[in-house]
Design a protein around this nucleic acid. Structure first.
Lengths: 352, 352
DNA sequence: GACTGAATTTGGATCGTTCCAAATGCGCTA
DNA sequence: TAGCGCATTTGGAACGATCCAAATTCAGTC
């Protein structure tokens, strides 16, 4: 048995090691690595064997430094723990991986301070671009300060506050919030409801404003009046929704249905209704937004709007990659359509 | 108004630009950046002003190359879209961010081929370490080939197949599957059940074997017999669980309760039971594992085991960071305890 | 065997940072 | 004023890859 030189190497193997190992120059090895047609057949084989032997791993950071390129893209999300964004993230990662990019993850937990920190830290790693779903209340000026004007940014899901023409050069991928909420409202109207509330979300969030606009649009088109107490704000989570449930019934006429800001809020409202002895899907109709996995499994299953988050993730990645191809073309604003999924939570009004 | 030199710079600002801008050497600027006490007060102020003026951003890749260090950690998950892992990921990212590391994300979608590709691609970026929740059926030899022996790896959630003493040098963070399943089984026994099934999962998955062992342990401790047809295998998702539901009732005595492999399976089983006219939580008791968000919201709410995935994520990050501190210490195997959350799905047997 | 054009191969500079040993400046004392 | 110690500052060589222009090899032809 031949004794190979197998002293435990703790230093990383570099191009020079390979070059020395088979008596060629670093340049040649580099050409082999990149599959250049310039290298001769025999040399290529010899080098490739040596690469295998020594267990070489490519140092992409060094290459990127020299070539002044980048092979990473930053993905910054306001709430990774939310299943909607988790699916989105896995779609992004999938598409980026196929294109040879690596995903730098950052989760901000809806905190503007963390968002600033995360953006700063990620920028130091020189991503080729970034995909950002901003924290609530994040504004354009701060994001611009953190990201700079050179790095392409794709805004997902939410608009930034305080946007001016100067920094409106970013691409966008937004959901068709207004049309979605309109569809849901029209659906409830078609079922016979006349007193329909809009429940949840914050007035200063762009997506909430858009959804509310869709609701208003449908109500007005159907010539239905809207009572002020049918608009109840709450944080976009289950807990606060339960707490605010009562506010719906403070005035008359009481609503018989509610279009909810999103699924989390709708599920919370369901709990709140149960606690008041009102059975959702029988005594009261409601709809959500997002179609998170739980929506199909709640009791009753939730009528909602689906945006196929994984597909949106892929789309976001592709939009950004296109931007990297042509950095100079005009900014794009893409609106992804959403579809109504009718389930048992949207029942006809009790009187009908 | 003084006209500043504000020609649009498309080249990135480097140390040299700053150095030139205030007549010091690159070395000095570098010292300022790293907060060295060697630089004089006046110089420091001058340099810091210039950094701000020019909008300098640190190039960590270049620094890492020179220092032969790394500031990233790779996180490779078998299923990011699963809320359990999404929460875990956000815990990891949080803790890594605090420690100054950036997270390189990779999602494998339970595919061994993708796992290999993802590991290979991430390694080229030279992470300081990695956290891996392996795809089902992933084996130690292939992972070792992709990752190498130099980079610290923390295994989470699942064991690798074909592990030998040689490559068993990795740290681990596992859930206390056996104890968890035992707690659930004991809980059902305490409620009066005698015929308890173990439903779902694959025999060749390490976590499934452990959970099944916990179940067996509790049954034997209570001197309860176990019928072979009480062990039903299925893929760890809702769909297959619905399909396999019938198998529970092929023989006699029929079980009155089931310990399920995980929440997804338990929720599927619920649906299957409903379809057969059996009402879970009244006619049949069941428990899950993971405490995914849906568990609290199903009808009936699911008794399950919670592992607080976000906290586990932080823990995983901390374990890996410790390993980076002392690369030579003995491999650690950490078992995170789980807690039983009793909800309405675990009812007493109908006869009682 | 000298000459030519194409096919290969190569040294050395470079990307943006850090390291290191050596140089510089400064305030004091003798 | 020379000499000393201390606090600052600095040039130039790394890190591991790529680029580029120039050098070398190789057939084939006269």
């Amino acid at each position: 048995m031949a004794m190979e030189s197998n002293a435990p190497v703790h230093r990383k193997i570099t191009l020079s090691d390979i070059a020395a190992g088979c008596n060629v120059s670093r340049a040649t090895v580099s050409l082999v690595l990149r599959g250049s047609p310039l290298v001769g057949k025999r040399t290529r084989a010899r080098v490739e064997e040596e690469l295998r032997q020594q267990g070489y791993v490519y140092n992409r950071a060094a290459a990127n430094l020299r070539r002044r390129t980048s092979s990473s893209i930053a993905l910054v999300l306001n709430d990774l723990a939310n299943p909607f964004f988790a699916e989105f993230a896995s779609g992004v990662d999938e598409a980026l991986g196929e294109a040879g990019y690596v995903t730098l993850l950052g989760s901000t937990g809806e905190s503007i301070a963390r968002e600033q920190a995360v953006l700063g830290s990620l920028m130091e790693h020189g991503p080729a671009g970034l995909i950002l779903s901003p924290a609530e209340g994040s504004d354009a000026a701060r994001v611009l300060a953190a990201v700079g004007a050179q790095t392409p940014l794709l805004l997902f899901n939410r608009e930034l506050g305080g946007e001016t023409p100067e920094n409106a050069h970013w691409d966008r991928l937004m959901l068709d919030n207004q049309r979605g909420a309109r569809l849901a409202t029209e659906h409830l109207i078609a079922l016979g409801h006349r007193h329909i509330a809009f429940f949840g979300g914050h007035r200063d969030s762009s997506s909430c404003r858009e959804r509310h606009a869709g609701y208003t649009e449908a109500m007005q088109a159907a010539k239905l009046p809207i009572e002020p107490h049918w608009r109840v704000e709450c944080a976009p989570n289950r807990l606060d929704a339960v707490a605010q449930c009562g506010a719906l019934f403070f005035g008359t006429p009481a609503p018989t249905a509610a279009v909810c800001y999103n699924d989390a809020v709708a599920l919370g409202l369901m709990l709140g209704l149960y606690q008041r002895g009102v059975q959702p899907g029988r005594d009261f109709a409601l709809t959500g937004f997002d179609d998170i996995a739980e929506a199909a499994l709640s009791a009753p299953p939730l009528t909602t709007l689906t945006a196929t988050p994984r597909a949106r993730g892929r789309q976001a990645a592709e939009l950004l990659l296109q931007r990297l191809q042509e950095p100079q073309s005009a900014p794009r604003r893409t609106i992804a359509s959403v579809q109504l999924v009718v389930r048992a939570s949207s029942c006809p009004p009790p009187t009908a």
